[in-house]
């Protein structure tokens, strides 16, 4: 198991490196002087030279790349001061350290993700299991029908409707906003509740359908039938035998969804006017702020890879065939 972990981590580092290289060189195919971009309005050629030197833009691309990569591990020095590891460079646009901007935005993204996750896992898996248990009954039909309707909704459609009803018309709620959890947990919750619910609605619908269909599939497995033939109670068979097998596809999709959410829920953030990682990514690519774009990409890649490893570990936990091979 340790071997497996080490091997996967080494692999993850290699992939992060490749993603970094790919983005970096791709960006340099844009015919644009980044120093000029970074310089702003009252720009003099001297200023540009200074900036160019500070950002290391005077050096060849490859050595810039190595400097960037080395900075992630060791940190770098800029005229603004020491950028400690993991240093993702300096924003061309604001002059801030990229890592600091990401750290600034991340709590919101994390809050959004975790809050939504709790809701959609609980409701989605719960209603999916209920539908599978009551297969073919009115309950199943109602749940399945609702989940099909809801999963065809989109956040940018549902979001404004919910905002319209609860914020603009009735005034029951305030506009969503982010309050740090550490400062005021209640305000944190109140501020996030609408985005959570809207986001979770769509995910709930997907997870309901998935949980239902994998459970129904599992219930037809021969080993599930064997468990019933042994006289085990239906509920026991349902939760011990069928559920166990359903976990694999659920965990797989969950890993994909989580890594996507953690690297920025762009649509949700824009719909509710929240400034998270997704927003940062979009803004930076619009302003051609290479270091920020790179930083966000690598940050996202990091989550994708980590969650991939977590999912593999989960497989090993769930399925002894994976663990023991």
């Amino acid at each position: 198991m340790l071997q497996f972990l080490v091997r996967r981590l080494i692999g993850a580092c290699v992939i992060i490196f490749l993603i970094g290289a790919f983005t970096f060189f791709l960006f340099y195919t844009i015919p644009q002087d980044f120093a000029e971009l970074s310089c702003g309005r009252n720009c003099t050629p001297q200023n540009i030279e200074v900036i160019r030197e500070n950002l290391g833009l005077d050096k060849p691309i490859t050595s810039q790349f190595w400097e960037f990569m080395a900075g992630i591990v060791n940190g770098r020095d800029f005229s603004q001061g020491h950028c400690s590891a993991p240093c993702l460079g300096v924003s061309f646009d604001t002059g801030e350290f990229v890592w600091d901007s990401i750290l600034d935005r991340f709590p919101l993204t994390l809050s959004l993700t975790l809050g939504g996750l709790v809701i959609f896992l609980f409701l989605g898996l719960g209603s999916g299991l209920l539908a599978a248990w009551k297969r073919g009954t009115v309950v199943d039909k109602a749940v399945s029908g609702a989940s099909i309707v809801l999963s065809s909704f989109q956040i940018y459609f549902l979001g404004p409707i919910v905002l319209g009803i609860f914020v603009y018309q009735s005034g029951i709620m305030d506009n969503p906003r982010y309050e740090p959890f550490t400062e005021n947990p209640i305000a944190w919750m109140v501020g996030m509740i609408i985005p959570w619910c809207v986001m979770a609605t769509i995910f709930t619908a997907q997870y309901t359908r998935m949980a239902r269909s994998t459970m129904i599939e599992q219930l037809q497995e021969e080993h599930v039938r064997t468990a019933r033939a042994k006289g085990m109670k239906q509920r026991y068979v349902f939760f011990r035998y069928a559920w166990r097998g359903s976990l694999i596809p659920i965990v797989t999709i969950l890993g994909v969804d989580l890594s996507a959410l953690l690297s920025g829920a762009v649509v949700t953030e824009f719909t509710f006017d929240l400034a998270g990682i997704g927003r940062l990514a979009v803004d930076s690519s619009l302003t051609k702020d290479l270091p920020v774009t790179m930083g966000v990409m690598l940050f996202g890649a990091f989550f994708i890879l980590i969650l991939n490893i977590v999912v593999d570990l989960a497989y090993a936990y769930i399925d002894p065939r994976v663990r023991l091979s």
Binding site: E221, E222, R225, T226, A229, R244, G245, D319
Partner: peptide, 11 residues
């Protein structure tokens, strides 16, 4: 049952 591989739970 016929096929003991599928008739026993792998878990």
């Amino acid at each position: 049952f016929q096929d003991p591989l599928t008739a026993l739970s792998p878990y």
